[in-house]
Design a protein around this nucleic acid. Structure first.
Lengths: 179, 179
DNA sequence: GCGAGCATGTAAACAGTTACATGATTCC
DNA sequence: GGAATCATGTAACTGTTTACATGCTCGC
């Protein structure tokens, strides 16, 4: 099975959800390290049902609308636990168009290069604010429940990475200006 | 045209290369923010020739072996410069299986979780060492030539990001141990 | 009644990976 | 002579994105 399948399996394990819910979750919380859109989610759910790793009950919303509420099976729980304890693949960074363009910085003049960095800086700072608001919800409460530990740790990670990225941007801007 | 095309275009602009060279470059320097393998490179080169953005001369190595040495055309230079100054797409983090598994940390016991972090830590530290060796080559020389500016800035970035990541791992290990 | 959002899916195109296939050159 | 590396490509599969297609529900 592919990673998307396990991602979905893990999310369904946390709570019963519909395909639509999954799409939302992928665009919110998980967005930092995984994502998927509807056209991937629905076929994958079908496959997971066929493999008997998940099951669904049909709920009727309003008068007619039928929605499928998915839950994990015992077989699914086992598959998930096996996968989670598997060895990690090699480290790999992702594709980043901004960095690719910076790599070709020789084709930009000083002003254009600074402009690129400053625009990125703005975006990163705005995203950082959003993460900080999100993590403040955790700092209010005392202990963190086991189900929320992963979410908390990864929020911490996202913030650290973003701060490091912004610091690099600051350094780069200073470096370019002094050139 | 897709991003890979521009990535190749930019690399060919830096110097005349063969398809084989490109594969090596993607696995070394550029590996941090872009990559591609042979089976993507050769067809893409064909397309770029058809679009007249690059051209090639045939060199004969030894007795028989013909290799194609690609260079950028004027049309290619213009296309590259247009692309580089384009607006950036929205920020996006990459898919990371390790993080996905940490997100589902509730299925790991304390020891398993610590083990995962410690293994990641080792890998990151080893990679960091490699980057530091690479950047030390720059610190020897005084000024950095324009063609190497991008490479230098991105090395700096990779190091900062890795250091932040390792620091997060350290924090996480301490946090889990005190739980 | 209307619009935003809920809800489920498919089709086609594009991007990327793994495996296959072949052969020359260089250095030891 | 053999092994590592140089060199070029294709085939099949897998994964991902964009667009299409439809209809219901809830709140105003």
């Amino acid at each position: 099975m592919n990673t998307l399948g396990y991602a979905i399996l893990g999310l369904i394990h946390k709570q019963k959800v519909t395909g639509y819910d999954l799409a939302k979750i992928f665009n919110d919380s998980v967005a930092d390290f995984w994502n998927a859109n509807q056209s991937q989610i629905y076929p994958e759910l079908k496959k997971l049902v066929q493999s008997e790793l998940i099951q669904y009950e049909i709920l009727v919303q309003g008068e007619v609308l039928e929605k499928k509420l998915y839950s994990i099976t015992e077989k699914g729980k086992k598959a998930l636990e096996t996968w989670i304890t598997e060895d990690e693949p090699p480290l790999s960074q992702s594709k980043d168009i901004f960095k690719l363009r910076i790599y070709f910085a020789e084709h930009l003049n000083k002003e254009q290069l600074l402009e690129k960095f400053k625009e990125r800086q703005l975006r990163c700072k705005s995203l950082l604010e959003r993460y900080k608001i999100k993590i403040s919800e955790y700092q209010d409460s005392e202990g963190i429940s086991p189900e929320k530990l992963g979410d908390f740790l990864l929020l911490k990670n996202a913030i650290k990475q973003l701060e490091a990225h912004i610091s690099w941007i600051d350094d780069s801007i200073a470096y370019i200006q002094n050139k």
